[in-house]
Design a binder for these strands. Structure first.
Length: 337
DNA sequence: AATGCTCCCAACCGCAAGCCC
DNA sequence: TGGGCTTGCGGTTGGGAGCAT
């Protein structure tokens, strides 16, 4: 990559010589770039920069266009649906930001990367665990993601009650549809994104409830790890205070622990969910979408597997900062305080 | 009001792969 | 086939905005 270094050095010299600008873009530069791309199209960024009269590197122009000026970009907060997707896809692909971004229309890899670094990693830091640790992955999978699903469902239900429309606080995109060319379902995930939670978990939920023992026998590594530690308590933590006592990481929540850890299981009556889940499991190679929408998610009384985080102090779980204000309220209600 | 701190995000950097002649 | 150039990706950083003291 010596050539690249030479080129970079060359660009650096041009910058030093005042021939190239860098730093924040001005409105004039944005207009120049937009107008030029509008009339000539993208590509050949170096020559584009020169032809457009921009004193910028092609690289800088490309980045500005892709991350900021592109007309199909979505602005604004990351929605719960998008958060769910990001968490799920990241658990599957890791820091493959561009690949993840492909599944979030209108979002850039840079935006997703920033979201991950500023929000998700912050939470990991608060929990005093590494963002790549199994502990944090379990927290995401069994606490954060179910909560997001609840929020999504609540927003959808509210939207449906309001003239079958869209929840006020949810951008139109999130309710998809053919009109915007985005996902047909608000909660559509790529088929291979279903691996975050064991497919058996979805299937069991769709069939009438979560079979905890089956979950323990799942081939999901995280679940498998837990199975060896929960023999006594796996029968029913919600009715067995002794089980909770044996799980120090649950203790700070006291009697509300099982509610805090309640799974968001599919309504057994949801044939759509049943089909979607089983279909996703069987057609995993076909890139068919795995629909999480069109279902009735409920906070079932069925139990969650204990988090495989023996050294994770859930008492230090900073509710206010981890969740939104709505989540905080939900937590408070759950706690009965 | 001033200062310091934290958060967030746009922009940059280095590197690698792809493309074209 | 190899060199020059372009594109794409992931990591890092600088600075503005907002908040706390």
């Amino acid at each position: 990559m010596d050539m690249a270094h030479e080129r970079d050095a060359s660009s650096e010299e041009e910058v030093m010589a005042g021939e190239l600008r860098r730093g924040p873009w001005t409105v004039e530069e944005d207009l120049l770039l937009m107008n030029y791309v509008a009339s000539h199209g993208e590509g050949r960024w170096n020559s584009l920069a020169r032809s457009a009269g921009l004193k910028r590197t092609g690289k800088s122009c490309r980045l500005r266009w892709l991350n900021y000026l592109r007309p199909d970009l979505r602005r604004g907060n990351i929605t719960p649906q998008e958060q769910l997707l990001i968490l799920e896809l990241h658990s599957r692909w890791g820091n493959r930001w561009s690949k993840i971004a492909q599944h979030l229309p209108g979002r850039t890899d840079n935006e997703i990367k920033n979201y991950w670094r500023t929000r998700v990693q912050k939470h990991a830091k608060q929990l005093k665990c590494d963002v790549n640790s199994q502990q944090f992955k379990d927290v995401m999978r069994y606490l954060w993601m179910p909560r997001l699903v609840e929020r999504i469902q609540a927003a959808t239900a509210a939207g449906q009650q309001q003239h079958g429309g869209v929840a006020a606080d949810t951008p139109p995109m999130c309710h998809g549809g053919a009109d915007d060319g985005l996902y047909a379902s608000p909660y559509e995930l790529p088929a291979d994104a279903c691996g975050g939670w064991p497919v058996e978990y979805y299937a069991a939920a769709a069939a009438g409830g979560v079979d905890h023992q089956m979950l323990m026998n799942s081939n999901n590594p995280a679940v498998a790890e837990m199975s060896g530690t929960t023999t006594a308590g796996s029968s029913s933590p919600s009715s067995d205070s002794g089980a909770v006592a044996q799980q120090p990481w649950l203790a700070p929540l006291g009697g509300a622990a099982e509610e805090w850890l309640t799974a968001t299981a599919c309504d057994a009556s949801s044939a759509a969910m049943h089909d979607a889940v089983l279909g996703a499991g069987q057609q995993n190679q076909q890139q068919e979408p795995c629909l999480l929408g069109e279902t009735t998610w409920t906070t079932a009384s069925s139990e969650l597997p204990e988090l495989g985080v023996a050294d994770f102090e859930i008492g230090s779980f900073d509710v206010e900062s981890i969740w939104s204000m709505d989540d905080s309220l939900w937590y408070t209600q759950t706690q009965g305080v």
